[in-house]
């Protein structure tokens, strides 16, 4: 989980192009979003995926020469190199509207508790694991962040610095 290196390396397209066997491929990333959340691969057309440190993926629109040694490249997007890949809150806020499965909708009180970082007991019939969390805002369901559903409980994954009492 080292973030010491500031170097970004572009993900290989497919397994055949992969030199580091642990590094995710673009194909695997697209498959992950489709299989877990039903986000169609076209959603990410025009975006490039980059790894910085071990497992932290970033999403960007440009195509600088890889590797590139700078401080930031677009947004953090997905945590890989672990058993269950985990999308970031920012990726879900930006692309979560395309999700059609493993999406849990919260009422106002539950949504407030979620963004304050609280875990809560909730009924959920679907898969355990990381879920896209939505609530109603300005007349529509809006993706707000990532929750981990296990043992009858939705565990807020809102990073500490991002939590708010709204």
């Amino acid at each position: 989980m080292s973030d010491q290196s500031t170097e970004f390396t572009r993900l290989p397209e497919t397994d055949e192009e992969r030199e580091d066997p642990e590094r995710a491929t673009r194909e695997e990333v697209l498959d992950f979003w489709t299989e877990r959340f039903g986000v169609p691969p076209e959603t990410f057309e025009g975006y490039t995926f980059w790894e910085r440190g071990a497992g932290k993926l970033w999403l960007y629109q440009g195509t600088p020469p890889s590797p590139v040694d700078i401080e930031g490249l677009g947004m953090t997007f997905l945590r890989t190199r672990q058993e269950h890949w985990k999308p970031t809150l920012e990726a879900v806020q930006r692309f979560g509207e395309h999700a059609s499965q493993n999406v849990i909708h919260l009422d106002e009180d539950a949504a407030r508790a979620f963004v304050a970082g609280e875990d809560q007991e909730l009924d959920w019939d679907g898969d355990w694991g990381y879920l896209v969390v939505t609530h109603d805002l300005a007349g529509e369901a809006e993706p707000v962040g990532v929750g981990l559903y296990v043992y009858g409980e939705l565990r807020s994954q809102v990073p500490k610095g991002r939590r708010r009492e709204v």
Partner: peptide, 21 residues
């Protein structure tokens, strides 16, 4: 200050910003 810049670009969902120090 770059840390604040990174936080803001993420919260605002910009995918076209590259940050150099």
């Amino acid at each position: 200050r770059i840390s604040a810049l990174r936080t803001n670009t993420e919260r605002l969902g910009a995918t076209t910003v590259a940050v150099t120090h």
